[in-house]
């Protein structure tokens, strides 16, 4: 049984259909890459799955249950983890406190009113563990706002790890990272994949990365799912070649 399924999932912004009747199922323990040109609707599709955006039509099924009507907090509590493309942190809190909050969310003691948060050493230790996994231990006491872009991306990922979800949604996790920072994130994704029981959705433009990590690739253009299959087969498709080439040209232009 698929762990996650979207059926005819659709969202409209005024007259513009950003995600158009996407039907797709994700098997547990697999890594699916989602590719497509900028503005294709990949982030919007993620928003519909994790609940940041209500769907105009269609449904989202998680572990066999319809979660379409649930808010993002309840979907997270059910096991949907999300790292955002546009870094979305608690800027004036320390790096450690950012992760500690995620650990606390996972531990479900948000309504513990009478104990001191600073005395929950188990939660703090766990937070340190996840900081270690994204190589941010040295920055633990820095405010999130003071981190470099690359470090903020890592912290973004650490928050998702700390939630210990069943499904990890990475939205361009390495975008804008320097070359030496990228492996930290890719190794991490690989580690999660190796563990075997976790499901991963990965939006990523770097086709070499996608080919190496993905079990399957789906392609979105203009909000529509246009291709779905084995990486080698999908990469060879003209639509993907087109999109991929477009990105290559743009990156070359920027660089």
């Amino acid at each position: 049984m698929p762990i996650l399924e979207t059926r005819e999932l659709t969202v409209r912004f005024g007259g513009h259909i950003a995600v158009n009747a996407v039907t797709c199922a994700f098997e547990p323990g697999t890594l699916t890459a989602i590719v497509g040109p900028n503005g294709a609707g990949k982030t919007t599709y993620f928003n519909l799955i994790s609940g940041q955006l209500p769907a105009t039509a269609g449904s989202v099924l998680f572990k066999g249950e319809d979660v379409t009507a649930l808010g993002p907090d309840r979907r997270t509590r059910r096991g949907i983890g999300r790292a955002f493309q546009l870094t979305n942190l608690f800027p004036n809190l320390t790096v450690l406190e950012n992760v500690r909050l995620a650990v606390q969310a996972r531990a479900r003691n948000g309504v513990d009113l009478f104990s001191m948060a600073s005395r929950h050493h188990d939660l703090i230790e766990k937070a340190r563990h996840y900081l270690d996994r994204v190589a941010l231990t040295a920055r633990a006491r820095t405010h999130a706002a003071a981190l470099s872009h690359g470090d903020q991306r890592k912290l973004e990922v650490a928050l998702m790890l700390a939630l210990e979800p069943d499904i990890f949604m990475f939205d361009e996790p390495t975008a804008g990272m320097s070359v030496d920072e990228v492996p930290v994130i890719l190794d991490l994704i690989e580690d999660i994949k190796q563990a075997g029981d976790k499901t991963i959705l990965l939006v990523e433009h770097k086709m070499d990365v996608v080919r190496r990590l993905a079990d399957r690739i789906i392609v979105l253009t203009n909000g529509t799912l246009v291709a779905d299959g084995e990486p080698a087969a999908v990469v060879a498709l003209p639509v993907v070649q087109e999109a991929y080439l477009g990105i290559r040209q743009r990156e070359a232009g920027n660089g």
């Binding site: 940041q52 907090d73 309840r74 997270t76 979305n88 942190l89 608690f90 909050l101 969310a105």
Partner: peptide, 15 residues
Amino acid sequence: AIRENEFRAQALGFS
């Protein structure tokens, strides 16, 4: 956390 970034706090699973 909610005061800092309500959107993110909710995404972490806090109601």
